[in-house]
Every structure is written in C-alpha cells, then in structure tokens.
Simulated scan of single mutants.
Amino acid sequence: MYTTIQKWGNSQAIRLPKALLEMARLRENDRLEIRVQDGNLVLVPVRKHRTLAERIAGYSGEHLCREWETGRPVGKEVL
C-alpha cells in the first residue's frame, strides 16, 4: 500500500487506510509510539494497562503460585 505525506495545519500527515488499520488491529484514538529505526518510520501501538479481568481471562493455568522463603529479617520489618 502507498500513501502521500500531506500538509495538515503547520504539520505534515499521512492517512492510514482502513484495511491496514484492521490488519494491525488498530482503531481511532489508539496511541502510537513513533520511532526511526535504520532510516524507517516505525509505528508501535501503546497498549493500555490490562484490567484484572483481562489478565485472568488470558491465564492458561500453567503457572502455579506457592510460598517462598525470603530469609530472616535484617532491619525493622514488621512480622
């Protein structure tokens, strides 16, 4: 796909085709980080903080939590 850089106020802008946004799973008002790598512009989505419900939904059950020993108190820790 190709696009053209165009004037937008005092800046320059490009339009991203809907099909391209859908392939990248991006929507209107999503935040992007813009970087230059090896002379290329790279757009990286800034993903929002996931809620606890979203994290639990993505949990596969592979990791089992357990207690661990952290050693004896060395300062004024509350026991």
Rank of each mutant, 00 (worst) to 15 (best):
1 M>H: 06
1 M>A: 11
2 Y>G: 04
2 Y>A: 15
2 Y>K: 04
3 T>L: 09
3 T>P: 04
4 T>L: 14
4 T>E: 07
5 I>N: 00
6 Q>Y: 10
6 Q>I: 09
6 Q>W: 11
7 K>N: 12
8 W>Q: 12
8 W>I: 15
9 G>F: 04
9 G>T: 03
10 N>M: 08
10 N>D: 13
11 S>T: 07
11 S>N: 13
11 S>V: 12
11 S>D: 13
11 S>M: 09
12 Q>A: 14
13 A>T: 13
13 A>D: 07
14 I>F: 07
14 I>W: 03
15 R>K: 11
16 L>I: 15
17 P>H: 10
18 K>V: 14
19 A>G: 09
21 L>S: 14
22 E>W: 04
22 E>L: 11
22 E>I: 02
23 M>A: 13
23 M>T: 12
23 M>C: 15
24 A>C: 10
24 A>F: 08
25 R>T: 06
26 L>T: 02
26 L>G: 00
27 R>I: 10
27 R>Y: 06
27 R>W: 05
27 R>Q: 08
28 E>L: 11
28 E>T: 13
29 N>G: 13
29 N>M: 15
29 N>L: 10
30 D>P: 02
31 R>C: 08
31 R>V: 15
31 R>A: 14
32 L>K: 01
32 L>F: 10
33 E>I: 13
33 E>D: 11
34 I>P: 02
35 R>K: 12
37 Q>E: 10
37 Q>Y: 05
38 D>I: 09
39 G>Q: 02
39 G>W: 01
39 G>N: 06
40 N>Q: 12
40 N>M: 11
41 L>D: 00
42 V>Q: 03
42 V>G: 01
42 V>A: 04
43 L>D: 01
43 L>I: 14
43 L>S: 02
45 P>K: 02
45 P>V: 06
46 V>R: 08
46 V>T: 08
46 V>G: 03
46 V>M: 08
46 V>S: 05
47 R>I: 04
47 R>G: 02
49 H>I: 14
49 H>M: 09
49 H>N: 12
50 R>F: 04
50 R>V: 08
50 R>I: 09
50 R>S: 07
51 T>L: 07
51 T>F: 06
51 T>R: 05
52 L>C: 15
52 L>M: 12
52 L>E: 05
52 L>S: 06
53 A>C: 07
53 A>D: 11
53 A>G: 08
53 A>E: 11
54 E>W: 01
56 I>C: 10
57 A>W: 01
60 S>Y: 03
60 S>K: 05
60 S>T: 10
61 G>P: 00
61 G>Q: 02
61 G>T: 02
61 G>C: 06
61 G>A: 06
62 E>R: 15
62 E>A: 15
63 H>I: 15
63 H>G: 08
64 L>C: 12
65 C>H: 09
66 R>K: 12
66 R>P: 01
67 E>K: 02
67 E>H: 01
68 W>G: 04
68 W>H: 07
68 W>C: 05
68 W>N: 02
68 W>E: 05
69 E>W: 03
69 E>M: 04
70 T>R: 03
70 T>S: 08
71 G>C: 01
71 G>Q: 00
72 R>C: 03
72 R>Q: 04
73 P>V: 06
73 P>A: 06
73 P>Y: 01
74 V>M: 04
74 V>C: 02
74 V>Q: 03
75 G>P: 00
77 E>P: 00
77 E>V: 00
78 V>M: 07
79 L>W: 01
